[in-house]
Design a protein around this nucleic acid. Structure first.
Length: 445
DNA sequence: CAGTTCGGTTGATCGAAGTA
DNA sequence: TACTTCGATCAACCGAACTG
């Protein structure tokens, strides 16, 4: 289909071209990054695996020929495909889906006559294509560049994915810069007989400016890319203060009444909810972990350690009463041991706090997401708890409802001191209802 | 006509599921 | 793994129907 003089290139050649010899790590600590290849298993058939591909590219064979392998055009430090570990961007890859024969012809024509920027490679991905624009120089993936890069990429996707290139021009997939793509040499959506193939379109390599210039009216500001990232200001938010001085924080929360009424009651509800679960649903095999989970919830909700300990021991009798095997009693020692979680570091605490972990360790079904009846109720309880917690920690957002228009009315009144509500309604277009609502608020000042 | 009450609609957001 | 979509809630909005 693509035989118009564009040579097909083997997976090894493709990735060697993208990551030239010497660009990846070859010695243990040479300061260079590596590729991460991810293999996704169809659900139920084992876990997702990730491989580190170094400068020799030997590990590529792990995903070539496989069902579903992903490789992003990025090098990483470390062993996992995470934003944190991302090091350098080597190419901008654009996914265009629902490309039929005619759309492909259109695309090739536009690449040929300069209407669209001609990619370095075009990769067939099954029902669509991936256009790879290799970069002259890899771009350092500092975290403060993320938004800029994402913006540029989105503009570029919208430019390439249009009614001539796709059967569905209206719903482009806006893939992020960290997104992996089906790797060259693995199977496509259409199965084993249709592997993902790469075709060389040009020897061109680009800069981000080249890409920006190819998009008409593109307003993305690339200047941050040339600046070094600023050091983050060290500010001590309430949330950080909590981590650093947990005892002070908890005394403050428990003994000094919090300013906003409802919030900590709501938080406590989450903790109480779990206590109820321990009574009603925890069985042998999940007893020890249910106490650990109590610690996690307690800390999250700002309950004092003393109270958590008290509550933990209060479950001792009940949990021991569940014992069905003389060799498997639940003792004071077990509770004591589980309570060590209170002193655990943050990392352990956050693993414990995840719904999945608690479910697995305690055998209590914490409803995944089948939205019916009381399961949904619990789902929201959790969401509300977390939201309330954020608010309490001073993160000041603003969740929940629709934003109000108090400010608009207020500003209009300052600009028109003699104005009447009627005029305000006409000027601002806000309904009279809303205007009246905020009118009196302004009056009070 | 100025202002209020009622109830459907809207924008924002959450965690989980889904998709690449 | 990253990011979008989905189902669902919440609080505020806004039109319509009312009140005086």
């Amino acid at each position: 289909m693509l035989e118009r003089g564009f040579p097909e290139v083997s997976p090894h050649e493709f990735y060697r071209d993208l990551f030239p010899e010497g660009s990846l790590q070859s010695a243990e600590h040479d300061g260079k990054g590596n590729l991460i290849a991810t293999q996704i298993r169809p659900s139920g058939k084992g876990r997702t695996k990730q491989w580190v591909v170094d400068d020799s590219l030997n590990m590529l064979d792990k995903v070539i020929g496989d069902e579903f392998g992903l490789i992003p055009p990025i090098t990483f430090y470390g062993k996992t495909h995470t934003k944190q570990n991302a090091h350098e961007l080597y190419a901008v890859a654009i996914d265009i889906d629902y490309v039929g024969k005619q759309q492909l012809k259109n695309l090739l024509k536009q690449f040929g006559n300069g209407v669209q920027l001609r990619p370095t490679y075009l990769v067939s991905s099954g029902k669509g294509v991936h256009a790879y624009y290799f970069l002259k120089e890899p771009v350092q993936l500092y975290h403060n560049l993320e938004d800029t890069l994402a913006e540029l990429k989105e503009a570029f996707i919208r430019r390439l994915w249009n009614d001539t290139s796709s059967i569905r021009p209206d719903s482009p997939d806006i893939t992020g810069i960290y997104q992996g793509f089906r790797c060259v040499g693995s199977q496509s959506k259409l199965g084993a007989d249709f592997p993902v193939k790469a075709y060389k379109m040009s020897d061109n390599r680009y800069t981000l400016e080249d890409i920006k210039d190819s998009i008409p009216n593109c307003k993305v500001d690339l200047s941050v890319l040339t600046e070094k990232p600023k050091k983050e200001k060290s500010k001590l938010s309430l949330g950080e203060a909590k981590k650093l001085y947990p005892e002070w924080y908890q005394e403050r929360v428990v003994e000094g009444r919090p300013k906003k009424k409802g919030t900590w009651v709501c938080n406590e509800a989450l903790y109480e909810w779990w206590k109820n679960k321990i009574f009603t649903e925890v069985k042998v095999g999940g007893r020890y972990f249910s106490i650990m989970a109590l610690c996690a919830y307690g800390l999250k909700c700002g309950i004092s350690e003393r109270r958590i300990r008290q509550d933990a021991y209060s479950f001792l009798e009940h949990l021991e009463s569940l014992t069905d095997d003389e060799d498997n009693h639940f003792t004071r020692e077990d509770v004591k041991d589980a309570l060590k979680a209170l002193k655990a570091d943050n990392k352990l605490l956050s693993t414990m706090a995840s719904r999945e972990w608690i479910e697995k360790q305690t055998k209590v079904v914490i409803p995944p997401n089948k939205r019916n009846g009381r399961k949904q109720e619990q789902h929201l309880q959790l969401a509300r708890g977390i939201r309330a917690l954020k608010e309490q920690m001073g993160e000041n957002v603003v969740g929940g409802g629709r934003p109000d228009k108090a400010k608009i009315v207020e500003e209009w009144r300052t600009a028109h001191p003699e104005g009447t509500p009627k005029d305000c309604i006409a000027d601002t277009g806000i309904s009279k209802n809303t205007v009246y609502k905020w009118w009196s608020v302004g009056e009070a000042l």
